[in-house]
Amino acid sequence: MKFSTRAIHAGYQAKAHQGAVMPPIYQTSVFAFEQIGADMEFSYARSGTPTRAALEDCFASLENARHGMAFASGMAAIDGVLRAFLQPGDEVIVVADLYGGAWRLLSKVMAPLGIKVSFVDLTDPANLEAAINPAVKLVWLESPTNPLLNLVDIAALSAIAHAHGAHVAIDNTFATPYLQNPLDLGADIVVHSATKYLGGHSDVLLGLVALNDDALQQKIRFIQNSAGNVPGPQDCFLVLRGIKTLALRMERHCDNAEKVAAFLVDHPAIEKVFFPGLTDHPQHALAKTQMRRFGGIISIYLKEDTREAANRVATRLQLFALAESLGGVESLVNHSWTMSHGSLPPEQKRALGLREGGLRLSIGIEDIDDILADLAQALA
């Protein structure tokens, strides 16, 4: 089956649920045993529910994986993967310009436990070859990165990591499984903040993990169950419902983003536009081979590089809500310096290329004429 069909049908059989066409919300914490010691597929909601299982199986199908796992949030998913790999004395190599919440978890939670965290510019695979050593157990990637939309060569980096005995995990939130399947390119684990595009409606918090290795899946599942980092059935239902329209939504997100990028490139108030679909993007050629389209996120530098200028544009926007997240049907604007990457020290923000006069735009699925008109009046 092709993607759109799997998004609607994979992981669920109506006959197993009284013929319900839509997966039911199993709003229960416990399941009754027929007798002591009975082998039960579901026994306690922390370990699993039919609603969660339907989501996990559907998601696994979309990432061409054997296993899917749902977590309470995207950060809970990242935490579960990190804890499955890393012990005191181990090292993780991390793409330098990653999401601020992931940086905080690695720097403020993992590093104090005795785990070495090395942030490396992985846009050049040679930098991984130079940095990797026997202590490295995991290489952590984002592609495209948040917020400056750099791409890394997933296949090349995975080959280098595997040659040195390390695993590769990648946050695929920006691309979604509709645009990119990292497991097919050699990565071992894919992580999503399903709060974003997979849910798609800014009304749910959830994380997802996909992988093929059976033993590794059992290890992450054990950590997940032991720590209780699991979503409720209502959240699972909402993400599963959102996934059913993912293909349609992503086509519109991509269509609109391409038109917005073309508009912003020539705008006199804009110094630079970051978007993989632009031919002058440093990894445009890689984007064309690694992704199916270029996504719905655009970042910009304003010519007036001040927080005041960024705030003036953000608050003038009428369709774009000023908010932390992305990937909803509505357009959103994020001030990465104070919002998504607010936990980073100022000097590190500057080193990564963040600016106080920079904004990240999540382009929604509104009519493109209205989006362009809103940007035009806000930038005037």
Rank of each mutant, 00 (worst) to 15 (best):
E63Y: 13
Q377R: 06
F274K: 05
A287F: 08
R241W: 10
S47W: 04
E91H: 11
Q18T: 10
A175E: 00
A156L: 03
G357M: 12
Q348C: 06
G342N: 05
A269K: 02
V239F: 05
L361R: 00
E142S: 12
A175P: 07
W140E: 04
D374R: 00
G295M: 02
G68M: 08
T28C: 09
Y26C: 13
L151F: 06
D255E: 14
A269N: 03
S226A: 15
F222C: 09
L352Q: 07
N225V: 15
L286H: 07
A257F: 01
I154D: 03
Y301Q: 12
A159D: 11
H167P: 00
P177I: 03
G199K: 03
S343T: 12
Y178L: 11
P177T: 03
L206D: 09
L185S: 11
K244C: 10
D370Y: 11
A54Q: 03
V117I: 06
I223F: 10
L179C: 10
G89A: 07
S29R: 08
G200R: 05
E91R: 12
R360P: 05
Q18P: 04
Q348N: 07
F237N: 11
Y99P: 00
L138V: 03
D374P: 06
G328N: 11
R249H: 09
Q35V: 13
T306K: 04
T338L: 08
V139L: 05
F85Y: 15
V139K: 01
P144T: 07
D374K: 02
A60G: 03
S336W: 07
S29P: 00
S299M: 07
V81W: 04
A310P: 04
R249D: 14
E330L: 11
S73F: 04
T245W: 00
K244L: 00
R307G: 14
P231K: 01
E41M: 13
C236V: 10
H67L: 06
G11R: 01
S61F: 02
R104T: 13
D188R: 00
Y197F: 13
K219M: 14
G37P: 06
P282M: 05
H281K: 11
E34K: 14
E142Y: 09
I220A: 04
L352M: 10
N133D: 12
Y26D: 13
D57G: 05
S158M: 05
A169Q: 11
H284N: 13
R104S: 14
E347T: 08
